[in-house]
Nucleic acid binder design. Structure first.
Lengths: 126, 126
DNA sequence: GATTAAGTAATTATTTTAGTTACATTAGGA
DNA sequence: TCCTAATGTAACTAAAATAATTACTTAATC
């Protein structure tokens, strides 16, 4: 998103983005789709195509970017289901979900305070 | 930690904990070591050994438990280093670290409000 | 001294994540 | 109209991170 912000109105193809991140264009394109679904960017096909920011960096918060590419749940959960015999195991999932929700809310509130423009400023300062 | 809290002063061996979570005792023991290092539990060897809470559930926050078993960094970072030619890639790591720190602080502040006793209460209510 | 537990190293298995290849689809421009 | 350059997407492979297992050492109790 920072790279797109620097390019301003110019389209940036997934291949260029992939180079700056040292990864594969398809990996980038999968992320671009999520950012697009969240309404943060537009993509254009064909020559001179690529991704462009849909809004000014001042109007984009890290909360939006984060929730676009991440499906919540700060703490992981163990892959196996806990024993249903155990009084804790029986209801821990529900209790943990409420904690996850609180944690996510706190995180989102903090990220909502930071805009892409803030990130650009910090990048310039180094 | 909730299971240990229910056992009160009684030791709980890793094998019992492993059963309630449907996993292997060694996986549990590795976690117990981290909890022990954080000063949250004590472990005892030999017959009738196992883990015991070191403090009352009212005095243990989820912040402590979380930071004992998790080494910060809410968002992952891409395994590859970004291009140093790119003005973003060059300094993004430092900028992201500051954001990580803010996010972690926000998360910790929220988790500090919840005690193990709160979790037990919620578990009882279902 | 037998037994039961933690601590720990080394290994294997599983799952998740990232990367790759290939191709269909879309749009622009000579 | 055809060529080219881009996204979208599926299928597959590779790599990394996690979890599980095995085996053994150390410590404590009875």
């Amino acid at each position: 998103m920072a790279v797109l912000a620097l390019k301003k109105a110019n389209c940036c193809p997934s291949s260029s983005l992939a180079e700056t991140v040292n990864t594969n264009p398809v990996v980038i394109r999968r992320l671009l789709i999520e950012l697009q679904d969240a309404g943060l960017i537009t993509t254009l096909r064909g020559p001179h195509g690529g991704a462009v920011l849909k809004r000014k960096p001042e109007k984009v918060t890290l909360r939006e970017i984060h929730s676009a590419v991440d499906q919540g749940n700060i703490f992981g959960t163990h892959p196996n289901e806990p024993s249903q015999e155990c009084p804790v195991g029986k209801s821990i999932a529900k209790v943990m979900q409420r904690i996850q929700d609180r944690a996510n809310r706190a995180l989102e509130q903090e990220l909502a305070k930071i805009t892409l423009a803030d990130v650009l400023r910090d990048l310039r300062r180094g």
